[in-house]
């Protein structure tokens, strides 16, 4: 009884982070591209862009809740990363890149918050009135979200403190491990665990309060 129950509790991760799809070939490719990119080879760097842009853009979208601002922030992040690639001292390129992406998002948000019109656009978008680009649920295990539930989730994410949101985006939405998320956030794994738990509990409360979860 307890055994079979636990099988249901431990969730199945259908969406895996880029790094965990890695085969040894991918890793070798990446090392080669990184070396060339450090020497200023834009083509080599663009192989990395191609590999990570979906993840980077998705994180930016969930962080900013604004597809266009997210695209701008992602582009700026890749420019910044290319300029700074010589200073990348090994470790996880994914974590290094995502840190740059997240910082670009926070910069963009700070800048946008000084302009009322943009803030208003985002408020409207957070309410779910603007369509999300390219809607396709990639998780076959879970039911497709209703528009209302999706809007509620987006609104709930927007309400969270930055670190709680980022933990949810990285672990739940992008499928990173706690360790990978900790690397991106520059925090101990224990901190990721608690931020994630608090964020999830807050989202749950909002889902219950809005009748999306009984």
């Amino acid at each position: 009884m307890r055994r079979s129950g636990r099988a249901g509790w431990v969730r199945f991760r259908s969406r895996v982070a880029v790094s965990r799809r890695s085969t040894s070939v991918r890793v070798i490719d990446e090392e080669r591209w990184l070396d060339a990119a450090r020497a200023g080879d834009a083509d080599a760097f663009n192989h990395l862009v191609e590999r990570y842009q979906s993840l980077a853009y998705s994180v930016a979208c969930r962080t900013l809740a604004d597809p266009e601002a997210a695209a701008d922030a992602t582009q700026e992040a890749f420019f910044s990363a290319f300029r700074a690639i010589a200073g990348f001292r090994g470790g996880s390129f994914q974590a290094w890149l995502l840190r740059i992406v997240v910082n670009a998002c926070y910069d963009a948000r700070r800048y946008a918050n000084r302009r009322p019109a943009t803030s208003m656009d985002r408020v409207i978008e957070e309410m779910g009135e603007a369509p999300w680009p390219d809607q396709h649920a990639v998780n076959p295990e879970t039911a497709v979200l209703s528009q209302e539930t999706l809007a509620t989730l987006e609104g709930a994410l927007a309400e969270l403190p930055d670190e709680q949101r980022l933990a949810i985006v990285l672990v739940d939405i992008e499928g990173l491990t706690y360790e990978e998320a900790a690397d991106v956030m520059g925090r101990p794994v224990g901190t990721v665990r608690s931020r994630l738990a608090r964020g999830r509990a807050r989202v749950r409360d909002i889902l219950v309060a809005t009748g999306n979860l009984s």
Partner: peptide, 30 residues
């Protein structure tokens, strides 16, 4: 509590991935 949390995570996981509409490739000299 656990079941509600599990379903919350399940819903979060079901949020659609936003696919970029364009490439973010950089050019030779930025």
């Amino acid at each position: 509590d656990l079941e509600q949390l599990r379903r919350t995570v399940s819903l979060l996981q079901a949020m659609p991935a936003a696919a970029p509409a364009r490439s973010f490739a950089v050019r030779e000299a930025v």
